[in-house]
Every structure is written in C-alpha cells, then in structure tokens.
C-alpha cells in the first residue's frame, strides 16, 4: 500500500457508506446511521469529496439513469479504506493505556 496521510472524517464515512452503492441522499442517510447521527454533511461537501475520490479512483459512477447518479466503492477504494481502518485501530490500541491507567 502506498503510504498516505490520515483520511478526513467525511471521506472515511463516505467510503464506508459506499460499500453499498448509493446516490446522494441515500448516502447521507447511511452516513447518519453509521455514525449514530454524529456526522452530517451538506451536498456541497459531499460532492466535493465524491469528485476527488472519483478522480483518485477510490469510487466510480456505476449507473447513470437519467439525473440520478449512483456511486460505488472500487477495489482501490476498499484497500484504502481497509488500511485507514487498520491505522485507526492501531491508534486506538496504542491509546489503551488510558483505560488501564484508570484501573
């Protein structure tokens, strides 16, 4: 895997949401569900991130039925998401001393 910096929260949740193909509104709903209502974003932000990830090859437009655009995660996107997940898990693991300290 190429090394990369941390992913933005928006990008992380959009990739998570796109493990199931979706379009704008459905994606936002799924992001809200996945984050327990913690993450909300506007269409401007959503479109900005989608465009960048599409360019980077993390996601692709699957079908183009009229005005509705469906996006899905690509293999490259899945790998990137996985490595970000691994990185975050490592961070959490390393932070365990905080909980041990409480005991």
């Amino acid at each position: 895997m190429p090394t990369q910096g941390p992913m933005t929260e928006a990008a992380y949740y959009i990739l998570l949401a796109l493990t199931k193909p979706g379009h704008g509104y459905g994606m936002m709903q799924r992001i809200k569900e996945l984050s327990g209502g913690r993450i909300a974003m506007g269409p401007g932000t959503l479109y900005g991130v989608l465009t960048r990830m599409n360019k980077d090859g993390w996601i692709e437009l699957t079908e183009n039925d009229g005005r509705r655009k469906n996006y899905a995660i690509t293999d490259k996107g899945r790998q990137t998401l996985q490595s970000e997940y691994d990185r975050l898990k490592m961070l959490v693991n390393d932070g365990r001393i905080l909980e041990e300290g409480e005991i």
Partner: peptide, 27 residues
C-alpha cells in the same frame, strides 16, 4: 448560492453530477 470556480470565459452551468447530488438532497 453556490459559488463555482469557472475557467476564464466559461459561463456554463454546474456539472450534471453536482446538480444531481444537490437535487437528490432536496435543492
């Protein structure tokens, strides 16, 4: 208002993909 960043002398509408996302969200 959405402020675009068009190239010089380009006065077209927003990309279809962008409009689709916004309209999907109720705009």
């Amino acid at each position: 208002v959405e402020v675009a960043s068009p190239k010089a002398f380009d006065s077209t509408r927003l990309p279809e993909e962008q409009v689709a996302v916004y309209e999907d969200c109720g705009w």
